[in-house]
Nucleic acid binder design. Structure first.
Lengths: 192, 192
DNA sequence: CGGCCCTTTGACGGACGTCAAATAGCGTGG
DNA sequence: CCACGCTATTTGACGTCCGTCAAAGGGCCG
């Protein structure tokens, strides 16, 4: 786990493994802001030297590389296309945060979990991390990670996952997930 | 109300009045992403030409001005201090979104509403929009706005506001709010 | 074997949602 | 001026989703 102090000076990108950025509350409960996969920037905010408002936990062992903040900023200013691409990354990051806000504010437990699974599936697929035939993928999250990402309790997450399994929508064992009924899962995820 | 299509071509800043950016769900429920006060940029994402994922509603009558996107981008690249200041605005915007995520994921109705009021109070104070002696401020939100911002129902918001009033923490009438017991309100807002 | 963590399951409770009725304010139009 | 329709708010009764608590089992590692 990386403290917010250590983060303040670097600008890291995940190369391998899964991580999560989260905020801890005084009462001990936790809210995951985003799950970080290979290729993800830890946070674009780190470019501007403000001490970040979150912490990061490695879920698997993680490899990452860091850039020099000032050199990166110069590259942004000099190359308009880099600037634009970086801008679009910022926007996507923000759009994901907005979706999480809607999920937490207005969706049920089943919907939140279905959407989490679907969004992870699509992000992993973009990275070629889903087996082409079996549709199986690595899934290192513990149920408490799912709980902290969806604003639920681990106990309730367990019950909802059991429900998805009972309906034959997912298969989930020893750190591996396969979506058996994508259409059904999408239906569970959408309107309430 | 401004549709997402109309927004796509401009880069607007609120000059006067209150507005809200929000996402509408197919079932008709709504989640407010942020309340926009004078001086706020509608969304930094609009700089990069992606069609925004939200809509905007004027809560009062709103005056705003818009900038040319490309000229603004050039100014960012040419003036490092402008670039940095803009970056810091992005970061603050994101930090506010993160706080909302934590609120919706991990806090009770009373806490969410207390935090909404406190954050509005501090933002209005920064803008000199709180009367110095009486601590009174304009408060044009309807209860359904508060509900959509906190992920609650208008009925429950009404009950929670009644509770705050009963405890003598706030005074809220005809579009005007005064915080009577800031310390108590802060206690309600913090740990659960 | 014996802890420890994770997961599962059930019983129960509480926070918040839903539904409904009553009231007030406010603008419109007769 | 009054009737009316609309919207916002308040309040209470009741329902439900999810949290809490507890017990039990499994896997892993010392």
């Amino acid at each position: 786990m990386i403290s917010s102090e250590e983060l303040a000076e670097t600008f890291p990108i995940i190369c391998q493994g899964w991580a999560a950025s989260f905020i801890l509350l005084p009462n001990g409960s936790r809210q995951i802001l985003s799950l970080l996969l290979p290729g993800d920037i830890l946070s674009v905010g780190l470019l501007f030297g403000t001490r970040p408002n979150f912490q990061v936990e490695a879920i698997t062992t993680v490899h990452y590389c860091t850039f020099d903040r000032n050199k990166f900023k110069q590259a942004l200013r000099n190359a308009p296309d880099v600037f634009d691409r970086f801008g679009r990354i910022c926007v996507e990051e923000r759009a994901a945060a907005d979706q999480l806000i809607v999920d937490l504010g207005r969706r049920t437990a089943l919907e939140r979990i279905a959407r989490l699974i679907l969004s992870l599936e699509s992000r992993l697929e973009q990275r070629g991390m889903v087996q082409a035939q079996t549709k199986e993928m690595d899934f290192p999250l513990r149920q408490h990670h799912i709980a902290d990402a969806t604003g639920l309790t681990p106990v309730h997450v367990s019950k909802m996952l059991a429900e998805f399994r009972r309906r034959g929508m997912i298969e989930l064992n020893e750190r591996s997930l396969t979506v058996r009924d994508p259409e059904g899962l999408r239906r569970s995820a959408n309107l309430r």
